[in-house]
């Protein structure tokens, strides 16, 4: 057996709309190791959420949704599973945490009931032991007086506590892999810090692997082990956090890092000019070419493949990296991402 829990191979999710085909995810591949936190990072519309939903098979059942590729979970392709089999996997082996804790809990049931439902369905536990599990999970995520809180309804919880409740639910059956889609985006920073601590502790304790979908590079730097940077439906760069933050190779990754104001710095921000491309009408060549400061002729003609850069496991989809194009301009780009601001 390989030490990878999940291998996603050439995942494509295309939506057929009146205006044409939207290639929301267009050939994404990555692997997740046991106990690792992988970040999928990108801006609105880059396909990061659709990727996570496709893995969980939350899209793909409608006629207008076309999902292809392989999602190997312990070597077994989730794409080939029947809907019923998939239901058995979801919530048990793979679970998901959504952005909005307000809408991911059912307002009509107590929080305890909703958590206890998981072991009752997946592990055929009795009511009582499932309830005890629910209370235990609430304790784990740091909710004060968990036995009392389990009997309360979601509206009696604050935003941060609801998100902890959702995390408790996702943990109830000891999953191998949790997909967290922007789990802290709706929270204030002091509450976000608490939730990030909980997620980190859980990984350290249980060895659960986590796919963290986020737009926030700060969250990635603090929490994750490896990063996949997405742009317009594709992964443009992938590597360890050291690769991405210290040695970013792709001009988009460098641009993202340069766009964020850092506490204590007064240096002028270097934004990425222009807008992301329209997913209805993607260019033939590199999807970032239009906004790229180092664009060359071949970038417009042909799409670059995701290839390994200097260090092992660090992959980049950029013509600058291929065919020895990386002298001239590269000198400048090297420095840009690694600037120390403190």
């Amino acid at each position: 057996m390989s030490d990878y829990i999940m291998e996603v191979k050439d995942l494509k999710t295309h939506f057929h709309t009146k205006k044409g085909i939207v290639k929301a995810v267009d050939g994404v591949s990555f692997k997740v190791k046991k106990g690792e936190i992988l970040a999928i990072v990108g801006e609105s519309g880059c396909g990061k959420s659709v990727t996570s939903q496709s893995i969980m098979r939350l899209v793909g059942d409608k006629k207008s949704e076309e999902v292809t590729g392989e999602v190997l979970y312990h070597g077994e392709d989730l794409m080939k599973k029947s809907r019923l089999d998939m239901q058995k996997v979801r919530g048990k082996d793979l679970s998901m945490i959504f952005q909005d804790p307000m809408t991911s809990l059912n307002p009509a049931y107590t929080v305890g009931t909703q958590i206890a439902e998981m072991p009752m369905i997946h592990e055929k536990k009795g009511k009582k032991s499932a309830w005890n599990r629910a209370v235990e999970m609430l304790t784990k995520v740091g909710i004060p007086s968990p036995a009392k809180r389990a009997e309360q309804y979601p509206h009696q919880f604050s935003g941060g506590m609801r998100q902890r409740g959702v995390i408790a639910m996702s943990l109830a059956c000891d999953p191998d892999l949790i997909i967290a889609d922007e789990p802290t985006t709706a929270l204030d920073v002091t509450i976000q810090a608490q939730v990030l601590d909980i997620i980190r502790d859980l990984r350290d304790e249980t060895g659960t692997a986590i796919i963290m979908v986020t737009h926030d590079l700060g969250v990635v730097a603090e929490l994750c082990d490896r990063v996949a940077v997405m742009y317009a439906g594709k992964i443009v760069e992938q590597g360890t956090i050291e690769d991405i933050f210290d040695r970013p190779k792709h001009p988009y990754t460098q641009g993202l890092l340069n766009s964020v104001p850092r506490p204590g710095s007064r240096e002028r921000l270097k934004p990425i000019e222009g807008q992301p491309p329209n997913l209805h009408d993607l260019p033939n060549g590199c999807r970032f070419a239009e906004r790229c400061p180092f664009v060359m002729d071949q970038c417009i003609e042909k799409e670059p493949d995701l290839l390994e850069a200097e260090s092992k496991g660090h992959t980049v989809a950029c013509w600058l990296e291929e065919e020895g194009n990386n002298d001239g301009d590269r000198g400048n780009t090297e420095g840009r991402g690694t600037e120390k601001v403190f």
Binding site: S158, G160, M161, V189, T190, I191, Q192, A193, Q194, L196, D197, D216, L217, G218, V219, V220, A221, E222, L223, I241, E242, F245, D246, L257, V260, R262, P263, V341, F342
Partner: peptide, 22 residues
């Protein structure tokens, strides 16, 4: 508040003050 901001720099090891409660 300052210590809670996630900084996009993996070398910025800072002292964390995590507030309890809401």
């Amino acid at each position: 508040l300052l210590s809670a901001i996630p900084v996009p720099d993996i070398h910025a090891k800072k002292e964390k003050i995590t507030l309890t409660g809401e």
